[in-house]
Design a protein around this nucleic acid. Structure first.
Length: 447
RNA sequence: GUGGUUGUAGCUCAGUUGGUUAGAGCGCUGGAUUGUGGUUCCAGAGGUCGCGGGUUCAAAUCCCGUCUUCCACCCCA
């Protein structure tokens, strides 16, 4: 059979894994320094935990796991006869693959509410699965790096999360724009335009502004049955270029003003010019249909055409659906796959010397091969990444291997070297070779 | 889910209006080179042309289906 892997999934080569780990390690290090603690949840959740949490669209993108055993015996016969797939699912599938990390986190918090200390600050770096059509920066299996705090509505956490974004991307060497908006401001716009009922439609339209322009947004809203007068009003408000300009426009919306106040508080915490990357207010940021209720975040890479590489926000009632109402949470997510793609495109990955192979032992015959293996042990004990060529074959072949493994040095041992204790230490780049004792070589490799 | 696109050697790709035994570069194996890699030269191995069906005297080439790739939309990281 011809080997293959499922659509939208990938294998990773050693080089790729090293690069991915560089991203994960950088992110994790920052999370830990800000006082967040790790948790992990299962790849599979009960389907009932997942369905209905991501909207109708999200339910379609959930991977369902077929029940074990004779699942058809218990299938909903009516739905089966009618070929009604969505109605049939609950009777043949009780589990599904995790779609994001936020919902499992909410479930985790509710299940362990008596043992966690609030505010509970957690991070989680695990794969999630979505049955989406793959395209650039879009996979069916991908990692998310989530950092959330639940059990406090202090805006200091919004500021903290913005700083985490800023710090992580600075460490990765990426130039990004960190955009902030507030759902209450968007609600205020709808209220001011008298279209509170069409809040979602308006939000989805506004979200597309940077893609389709103001004219496109107007068309989009018109297509969603929003009256022309309201569209004009929305357009006027969107033209405001600062939080200050926005205030009078939303003066008659209590919700809108609350949103503005929240944004001002966050920016006040952050101070001016104290970040590496731009942290900016963006009134057109909407973030789709998700459960956010307060501040919302999105990060975009500069100098590369890629979707958002991170996003998040505040949700007033994260745990309510699991029977623990009134607990507020705020969190953001890093899209590790897209960050990888951007860093690859901009060639931002450093060569990590700590993971590189430093030296390979080569030998001429059985006796020197065994001698070399004993030397190898000492080199490794000194903390140096080292290998031995598996057999004493032709030198040319052995050197080709060293070359391909990209090791900077080779140590050649034959009967002469064994007799004198002076080993041939070769620099693969310059071709220079010296006769040194093992101790001297270890000294060189350490320095 | 909608529309388009892609698939030929390990990799990147040629392959004419359908016509003998499907090619190239790189890589791989061996040799030139029995104490030294990268360069060079020589030789060799390696292909159900994504898969299934159809049209035809004849299909990598045309048609249908299917899987996969990438792209746009929807949505999203």
């Amino acid at each position: 059979m011809k080997p293959s892997i499922p659509k939208g999934t990938r294998d990773f080569s050693p080089e790729e894994v090293n690069k991915r780990n560089f991203i994960f390690d950088t992110i994790r290090e920052v999370f830990v320094r800000y006082g967040y603690q790790p948790i992990e949840t299962p790849a599979m959740e009960n389907l009932s935990t997942l369905t209905g949490k991501y909207g109708e669209e999200g339910d379609k993108l959930l991977f369902k796991v077929l029940n074990n055993g004779d699942f058809l015996a218990k299938a909903d016969e009516e739905a089966l006869d009618a070929r009604d797939s969505s109605k049939l699912i609950p009777s043949i599938s009780k589990r599904g693959l995790r779609y994001d990390l936020t919902v499992p986190f909410a479930r985790f918090v509710v299940m362990r509410q008596h043992e966690v200390t609030f505010p509970f600050k957690r991070y989680q770096i695990q794969p999630v699965w979505r049955a989406d059509r793959p395209q650039k920066g879009r996979y069916q299996e991908f990692y998310q790096c989530d950092v959330d705090v639940v059990g406090s509505d202090s805006l200091v956490y919004e500021a903290e999360l913005a700083q985490i974004y800023d710090e992580v991307f600075a460490k990765l060497g990426m130039k990004v724009a960190i955009k902030i908006n507030n759902r209450k401001v968007l609600a205020g716009i709808a209220e001011a335009a008298g279209i509170s009922d069409s809040f979602m439609d308006m939000t989805i339209s506004i979200d597309k502004l940077d893609k389709i322009g103001m004219e496109g947004v107007e068309k989009e809203m018109a297509g969603r049955d929003i009256p022309d007068s309201a569209i004009e009003k929305v357009k006027t408000i969107l033209e405001a270029e600062s939080i200050e300009e926005l205030k009078p426009l939303l003066a008659n919306s209590a919700t809108g003003l609350k949103g503005i106040e929240e944004l001002e508080t966050v920016f006040d915490y952050l101070g001016i010019g104290e970040s590496t990357n731009d942290i900016v207010f963006d009134i057109t940021l909407a973030r789709g249909l998700s459960y956010y209720t307060g501040c919302i975040f999105e990060v975009e890479a500069k100098g590369v055409k890629m979707g958002s590489i991170g996003g998040g926000g505040r949700y007033d009632d994260l745990t309510g659906v699991f029977g623990m109402p009134g607990t507020s949470g705020v969190g953001v997510s890093f899209g590790a796959e897209r960050i990888f793609d951007v860093m690859e495109e901009l060639k931002l990955f450093p060569l990590d010397s700590a993971i590189q192979l430093k030296v390979v032992f080569l030998s001429f015959d059985e006796a020197s091969h065994r001698y070399a293996f004993r030397c190898l042990r000492k080199v490794r004990a000194a903390g140096i990444n080292a290998e031995i060529y598996p057999e004493p074959t032709k030198m040319g072949k052995q050197f080709k291997y060293v070359d391909k493994r990209n090791a900077p040095h080779a140590i050649v041992i034959g009967s002469d070297e064994m007799a004198s204790g002076k080993l041939a230490f070769k620099n693969m780049k310059t071709g220079e070779q010296e006769s040194l004792s093992l101790e001297e070589i270890i000294e060189r490799l350490r320095g």
